[in-house]
Amino acid sequence: MDIRCPADVSGAILVGGKSRRMGCDKSLLPLGGKPLVERVIDAFRPLFSHIILVGDREERFASHGLPVYPDIVTGSALGGLHTALVRAGTPYLFVSACDLPWPDPRLIARLCSMRDGYDVVVPRMPHGLEPLFAVYGTGCLPAMERMLREGNFRIYDFYPEVRTRYVEQGELAGLVVPGRTFVNINTPREFETIRNKEEGMSVKAVSFVAKSGTGKTTLLEKVIVELKGRGYRLGVIKHDAHRFEIDHPGKDSHRLTAAGADTMLISSPEKLAVVKKHDASPPIDELIATYFGDVDIVLTEGFKKSGLPKIEVHRKERSATLLCRGEAHDPTLLAVASDEPLELDVPVLDLNSPAQVADFVERAFLK
């Protein structure tokens, strides 16, 4: 079915938020194999002939092949919406935030179809208005510009001054799924919850990464002690890029494995160990799902190329640069544990305070 929107409506995605509560650029967080912003772009492509991004970080979005416009008036979603209306070049605009995991093209097309005779078409759900998933016309610009001059950045405050169409949930039958359609992501915990829904991960996980010799094992050891003291059940995965042996020649278990067993398990009254042969390292999500269903959180050491949320360990004597910031910009970085002050877009924790690092993990994933 063709759901393309009329040519007088452009699509705009706001990508200029500071993501303070998330601690990193949430538009680039990977979900289901794609950054969040790309999921919104994919929903827009079959609908609009003209799509723009609005924000001040053009270099991060150049790969999408869409125009990126910096805010004319910085510092608010209202400023981003104003910029989108000015730059779009069409009488109407459908605007979305960049952090909606499940934008529905059918719902967008339905809202756009209601635009005639109105300056704003906005969903009004039981929980409130959805001003960043709505249609706006250029007739809104005078009221927007007045509010920006006055320093009033609450978008829906200008609705009474223009022709506003409030769309109730009952008018969108079959298009709105409570707890899904208008969900957005603001915090690491929200992202983890949504990632579990999308990707099926039932166990929370965070990876400690660092350049070799920085001391991530020492920090991780102390964080484990802290979290165990708070009553949590912990799993730990250590990434080893080299071959390793946990069994020794002469032991019965080693003889059985050497004889050709593909999986060998040894069990005692206190613990068990599994030796399982494979041709390539299994995905980290598969390891977590298979072996760690009985813990509250998995702490991994390494796996810097994975999509897991990350805490980078930094020691100034080891390196002046970071793995996840600088030349690389890993959107899954949640925090840096450092022994020196750093100016970053994520929280900087005290490397010498395992309790502070444990507090961050507990706050982000366990409470």
Rank of each mutant, 00 (worst) to 15 (best):
P283H: 07
T290S: 10
T74S: 11
E190D: 14
K304D: 09
L342G: 03
P331D: 04
R233H: 08
L334C: 05
L85C: 07
R106Y: 03
L299H: 12
S281G: 02
G215I: 02
V236K: 05
H50L: 06
P354Y: 02
P309K: 07
V40F: 01
L47H: 00
V236E: 05
A337G: 06
D240C: 13
A134L: 02
G235D: 13
S113F: 06
P282G: 11
C24K: 05
M147V: 07
V206M: 05
G326R: 05
T217E: 03
A62G: 11
E130A: 04
N186P: 05
G89V: 04
P249M: 09
L220K: 07
R149D: 13
C98V: 14
G137M: 06
L342N: 00
E161Q: 15
R195F: 06
F182C: 01
E171P: 04
L111N: 01
V298G: 11
P123G: 03
R57K: 15
S49E: 15
T300R: 01
L66Q: 03
F153H: 15
R115M: 09
L227T: 08
R39K: 14
A109E: 10
F44Q: 02
E270V: 14
F153G: 05
V209S: 06
F208Q: 00
D116G: 02
G137V: 02
E286G: 11
L31Q: 06
D8T: 12
V183L: 14
C140R: 00
E59S: 09
A134D: 01
T90E: 12
L132I: 10
A241E: 14
R325Y: 12
C5A: 15
K277F: 01
H254M: 11
V361P: 11
D116H: 12
G79H: 08
E171R: 04
L351W: 04
D359Y: 13
G215L: 09
L272A: 10
G179S: 12
M147W: 05
V15F: 00
V9G: 07
E145K: 09
E168W: 14
C98S: 15
Y136A: 02
F182L: 02
S353Q: 15
N152A: 04
T214D: 00
P126S: 04
K34Q: 15
H254K: 13
E245M: 12
E38P: 06
L81C: 07
D330V: 04
G137L: 02
C112D: 05
L351F: 14
D359L: 02
R39L: 13
S338F: 09
H248D: 14
P269Q: 05
D71T: 12
A173Y: 08
K304F: 03
D285S: 06
I311S: 00
P123M: 03
P249Q: 11
M22G: 11
R87E: 15
T263K: 11
T74F: 02
T300C: 12
Y159Q: 03
E192F: 00
V274Y: 08
L265Y: 05
M147S: 06
D25T: 12
G151D: 12
S353W: 13
A355V: 14
Q356H: 13
I288A: 00
A43H: 09
